[in-house]
Amino acid sequence: MSGPNEIIHQSMRLKIMAALNVLAPSAALEFTRLRGLVGATDGNLGAHLETLAEAGYVAIEKRFVDRKPQTRISATATGRRAFAEHVAYLREIIDSDGQ
């Protein structure tokens, strides 16, 4: 059994990856929408996104829409793989406990 992914396992980062993983591969979520989904504050979400971006798990795109700044976040292929592996690890723990 492999170990947990230390970066993803933190509760808020787990929620972030879970939300982004629902999206289609090329799709992204706006910062404000993601904030609502995971129930974070601006600062808290920003800090966790930075950690995930440094690990190469999420991509952060900043752009202007109608002269307003917009931040869009998507899961990278590496991030999706890491998330899937972490979920598999969690299931393995539960399955091995039941045997």
């Binding site: 879970a18 999206l23 609502g36 989904l37 969690l90 539960i94």
Partner: peptide, 18 residues
Amino acid sequence: AAASLNEIAAVEQRTRRT
């Protein structure tokens, strides 16, 4: 592990609904 999986399922459901 079960708590984490429940958390994941809840966020996924909320995201799809949104």
